[in-house]
Design a protein around this nucleic acid. Structure first.
Lengths: 349, 349
DNA sequence: CTGAAAGCGCTTACAG
DNA sequence: CTGAAAGCGCTTACAG
């Protein structure tokens, strides 16, 4: 392997000068710089990351932390697999462009496991930055460990509005409100909600958005049922909402899995979707795209969020073209209308 | 950060002894070993990977090489996203268990880009091993660069039966033959084939398996149409196969996308699947699971293959329990029967 | 604008 | 069974 000494010798300068050129430091004569670069290129020189990391303050490594159990489950089920892939899609291009490497690190939630795993990660890799995906983004021990190690980190879609680290928040309330707006625009006036597990912040935010939007349109909720983000809970909640006399003409579920469960409940009751009942979900999961009818949903801007996180960690003092980060600081959700929502049926009661 | 010096000082030994204990080298008194481990644990010591890599011969890094364009496309489409996720699922657990880190490295196919990218990867990271996914697994330049750098590498599902590196092959012919066996068992005697792009080795292997299985059952192909692995080509090929007078009662497509295209062609002709026509695919993609009717397909054992690759790189001289690798050396495909295949219609011509 | 020295935290020979 | 010395390939102060 060719080292910095080889380049220095060939170029007739000291290794320090080569180092300056490679790191784009100032105070190098332009001709020297060009010459060194030419020699490095000719020799096929590429700096050794371990040496750089050991001697300097940068490792050129960004670690993406994901919950071990959840991630392995997602990969195995090949269903919710989207999430991490979207993160990778967002993180990878800016990292590649800046010569950074991305490490997906699976960390267990159990504190007795998490503590040594995170400490080993930080000590072994000394990553220049860590990106926390939910639920790690709100784990007190995780935040504490990173904070103590003084490792820069970004929390993707945190549920807590404060705490350490850079937070890249998602405006879930606005997204939920947007979905209500979509249903109202179709003509619906009786809209029910299937709420997610109340212990999740996302679930509360989505309910908040739902209620605010209804108020704005001077409507009352046509029933609220509580689920836990699973298909089965959506099935039960759907049955409950649709069992009454004045059933809603549209139901907004806090995630796609529950929306699909609700769709099954509607089918069981002989209701056609969307002719008799409109159903909307949240997440734009694979299931939403492949369902029959396909499910109207709202897509989290995860790719943009992850890209912003990577750029914030790579360029702590502002992106090269700083304007961009600002514009994607709080990227918007995207409403994806599909075949499960339509105008309400004409009244016949 | 606590270093090996801190541990050595606290334990009252030299750093070399600490190093021996940590690397599980022989020639350490049992009491010394226990004491050092206790001190290391108490201090929360974790070795710095950069220092280990720089000083020693191991980096504890496994790089998974994937084609840049294809991977970004897959991630963006959120459709073929399965592939890399399956690889990650296979590679991650053995690496975690052995203290290795996994890096997904996107490499461009263009030689002018590939050469510096691969060289930089090898020089910067000095990975202990590289896992090549298709099509990199058969790229001559890629193989040459890795071979020259003397980096151990594994080729997943290579199409060429020889060349450098450890090859973990898939028996695609056997998988195709198995699918034909499934159709024959259902009662089909007139089975057509939609072949994939002939420039892919996989396509040839699958056709070979198809023909061998038919021969074994003393049947003739009921038509062979050539596609290129795309939905559209499957649509066209299906129309061609089904347009004749003595149409097949079952069609085996060399991948799921073409099978789904063929299904559309059948629908367009008013043929019900599977009542009038059985259709089988290959890959067990997400589309197969969500299609209507769901598509019978065959699943590549990618997870097992990737796990075997990781273990081969982590334990070059045999897995700790060496028996296991042998058993997954050539893991079998899994036939996944779904609703697109059934008994043939009763003859009525 | 350029360079000589020291040191990052380990492992590799080598010596005892 | 244990340790002192050298060195991996860079960057960090510091000097000129």
């Amino acid at each position: 392997m060719v080292t910095i000494y080889d380049v220095a010798a060939q170029a007739g300068v000291s290794i320090k000068t080569v180092s300056r050129v490679l790191n784009q430091e100032p105070n190098v004569r332009e001709t020297t710089r060009a010459h060194v670069l030419a020699v490095a290129d000719r020799l096929g020189y590429h700096p050794n990351l371990s040496a750089r990391s050991l001697a300097g303050s940068r490792s050129f490594v960004i670690a993406v932390v994901a919950d071990a159990t959840l991630t392995l489950e997602h990969w195995r089920s090949e269903f919710g697999t989207d999430y991490l892939a979207r993160i990778q899609l967002g993180v990878t291009p800016p990292c590649r462009a800046a010569g950074y490497h991305v490490l997906i690190e699976l960390i267990d939630r159990d504190p007795a496991l998490m503590r040594p795993q995170v400490n080993a990660l930080l000590a072994a890799l000394r990553p220049d930055g860590v990106i926390l995906t939910p639920p790690s983004a709100d784990d007190p021990l995780m935040l504490d460990l990173l904070d103590h190690a003084a490792t820069p980190f970004v929390r993707l879609g945190p549920e807590q509005p404060d705490g350490p680290g850079l937070r890249l928040a998602l405006d879930e309330a606005a997204a939920a409100a947007g979905m209500v707006g979509h249903l109202v625009a179709l003509g619906h006036e009786r809209i029910g909600l299937i709420e997610g597990a109340p212990e999740y912040g996302s679930s509360l935010a989505r309910r908040r958005g739902f209620e605010a939007a209804l108020r704005e349109h001077r409507l009352e909720p046509a029933g609220i049922a509580v689920g836990d983000y699973t298909y089965d809970s959506g099935l039960r909640a759907g049955a409950a909402l649709l069992g009454g006399r004045f059933r809603p003409t549209a139901i907004f579920a806090s995630n796609d899995d529950m929306a699909l469960g609700c769709m099954a409940a509607a089918n069981a009751l002989g209701l056609a979707v969307p002719a008799d009942l409109s159903i909307a979900g949240f997440d734009d999961s694979a299931g939403a795209r492949f369902a029959s009818p396909s499910l109207t949903s709202v897509r989290q801007p995860l790719v943009e969020l992850a890209a912003a996180a990577a750029e914030a960690l790579i360029w702590p003092n502002g992106t090269p073209d700083a304007g961009r980060l600002g514009t994607i600081d709080r990227p918007g959700f995207v409403l994806v209308p599909r075949n499960s929502t339509a105008a309400p049926p004409r009244r016949h009661w």
